[in-house]
Write a protein that binds this DNA or RNA. Structure first.
Lengths: 254, 254
DNA sequence: CGGTATCCCCCGCGATACTG
DNA sequence: CAGTATCGCGGGGGATACCG
């Protein structure tokens, strides 16, 4: 951990949060991730050693509390302290800025289908699911052999890298980049359907209900707002050819 | 520059801002620093190479604009773009959090007297200065031979590491840590005077006016608010022994 | 002043093996 | 599963010299 040697609150905060991965760890803790391996799954590329280092540092500075439940199994929980919870404002400011100024098309190396499904798993409207178990198969184009499954019940949601064995109820075939953009609010689900970037094969009732099972990304609203914001500024600057301008549609960008 | 490989606005923002020094560079640009060497002076410990690297990166991502005025001298200005200016929210969130949770007594290695004077230089109420040039000598205790000067005119303010030659109008003798705490709003100037942590030797009129020449740290208000905030929570938790509690005074902490 | 080019060292980090 | 201990490397970054 580097020390800037400046007696300044911004420098102190940057010392604590500036280490690689630390802000993403906080982001995930803020959205309810509590276990070591869950954090690790949400941060592909981090090594176990490094995650442990970062978590220890966060404990030392009073942002994270480690709680070991000795009762049932060796479940160790990482929870944000009060100080950690108040980082919500920092992460939110980063989110708003990132959505407006650091965002655009996904880079190829950002198209990790497993991470996407992992994120989706944590944003299921459990109470909107059908009563019976549902297995959804995702067939992502643009990545070789990217076929994974989501097993949805009202008790539990799991990402399967192997066929779960049960019958598949819904088959989603999608362009991975487009599905990511839908996830993040840059593209509307309906538009993606219409442009054949997403295809849902299931009994009509299920296919129609499918998009409602997901809350989509927590960042989607900010991303949409940022797009409108920037479009607004661009239009304002360019002078605008039409006085009554059409509501900006999310057009497929093929 | 590290890439997290996550299509997420927070990760994208962290990629751009997470490099060492970058947030402090933005902090200084936000407060009006515009020249390479001025940035360097405000960031003791950064190498010229690294500062140049960081500034180039910030240009590449559209946060900073480099403007070379070819007219007069070879003055090169670094200015925040619109995107850069909107980082104000991020830095502000860090400031608020840092003031509340990452702050406390200064660490010994943070007691750089030159940096303090450099900061003071940029927060002078130029219009409150006397009409004639004023030379203030600072005699910081706790550091060997830490004697420096501030030369104040309504045209220009400069930090002198050598005696500027002119007569000294005000001699400030102070404990460096305490003066830093006054600078940052953790200690009131008057209390520090009373506790002999700061001593001002000058003609009465000048001595009395001296503290009003400075705007003190831009972070001071946040720091004060954070102290009250935390005290409030502490009192609320401890139950409070007195029903009418005295307004929390900033007592000298000797 | 306002940087770039070069060299070289150190430590942040990944990989691996091991433990409760 | 939830980590710790150890080793080895690569590149981030400091020091220095140089240029416009």
């Amino acid at each position: 951990m580097y020390q800037y040697g400046q007696y300044c609150p911004v420098a102190r905060a940057a010392e604590i949060l500036g280490d690689r991965w630390t802000l993403l760890i906080v982001r995930d803790l803020l959205t309810g991730t509590r276990y070591f391996n869950a954090l690790k799954r949400g941060l592909p590329g981090i090594s176990g050693t490094l995650l442990a280092d970062r978590l220890r540092r966060l404990q030392d500075v009073g942002v994270v509390e480690k709680r070991s439940e000795l009762k049932g199994r060796s479940t160790t929980e990482y929870l944000l302290t009060t100080a950690g919870s108040e980082l919500r404002d920092v992460v939110h400011a980063l989110l708003m800025w990132g959505a407006k100024w650091g965002f655009g098309e996904p880079r190829p190396e950002e198209l990790d289908p497993i991470l996407l499904l992992w994120w989706m798993r944590s944003r299921i409207h459990i109470d909107r699911l059908p009563a019976e178990r549902i297995v959804v198969e995702f067939d992502f184009r643009g990545v070789e052999n990217a076929v994974y499954w989501l097993m949805l019940t009202r008790k539990d949601v799991s990402v399967c890298l192997q066929h779960p064995g049960h019958d598949v109820d819904v088959v989603v075939t999608a362009d991975l980049a487009s599905f990511y953009e839908v996830w993040l609010g840059r593209l509307s689900y309906d538009d993606a359907l219409r442009a054949n970037q997403i295809n849902v094969d299931a009994l009509p009732a299920l296919a129609c209900d499918f998009p409602n099972w997901f809350a989509w990304s927590a960042a989607a609203e900010a991303v949409r707002a940022a797009m409108l914001d920037r479009d607004g500024e661009r239009l304002a600057v360019s002078g605008g050819g039409t006085e009554t301008c059409e509501p900006p549609l999310h057009l497929p960008n093929d």
